[in-house]
Amino acid sequence: MRRRGRAGRIARHVLLACTAAFALAPFVWMISLSIKPPQEIFQADFHLWPTQFYGFENYRIAFTAAPMFTFLLNGLMVCAAIFTLQLLVCVPCAYALAKLRFHGRDTLFAAVLVGLLVPPQALAIPHFVLLYVFGLLDTYAALILPWAISAFGIFLLRQFFRAIPDDVIHAARLDGLGEFEIIWRIMVPMSAPALAAFGIFSVVAHWNDLFWPLIAVRSADISTPALGILLFRDDEAGQFLGPLMAGAAIIVAPLLLAFLIAQRRFIDGLAVTTMK
């Protein structure tokens, strides 16, 4: 019994390790390229660590050839604004759909589900036209506003809110809290893990998004990181492959860092709500 258990465990770990290696390989390769000199990048024999360490130069070029800090700052601002707006819309909507009784609630929820099925690319043209009409193209608003309402966020939070017992809300009403106070004093803290999960989805999606910024924005000074990195590609790619990879590494770094720091908190958050 025990032996079989151990063999199974080893097999599981090998399988997981293979999958992880497969997922990480391009990433490792990117880091490796970002510290190699140009001539070494195109050598036939491949090694992970360069014979001549060129990282310093590549990263210097990445930071100086394009306004990398501006991109990062733009990315931060745009993602923060999108997530804030999404919360302002999603949380009350999800609360109403999960916990209030009113006519047409089920129809509205069905509409949210339909919204979930519509790919964002399908809405690109209507959004573009709308922004054009309001004269908002090539502004921060163009990057932010189309994402302010997230059907996914409403759906996710609504499911989570439904799991919170009605008794807690009844207790809060008897304790004298108004509906909005119930939302932000009771529902929001009690669903912190769901909000965190939604935050991860939202921030990752919009930090990495290239499709929409490419359509909505042209000026470099409001470019997000993913768009900004294209500036490298415009030059002769051969010469700039090292700095390009360095740039790519720079724009992933903040996300990685944020998750490494927040990891513990997410797990703690999950543990808190499972306690009754």
Partner: peptide
């Protein structure tokens, strides 16, 4: 009126003190 629920319906994210204090604070 005040109500005591079968499931207790305490606020899990608040300390015992804050749970008991909440109805006084809101009033």
């Amino acid at each position: 009126v005040a109500m005591v629920f079968q499931s207790y319906a305490l606020y899990p994210h608040l300390s015992v003190f804050d749970n008991i204090a909440l109805p006084l604070r809101t009033r």
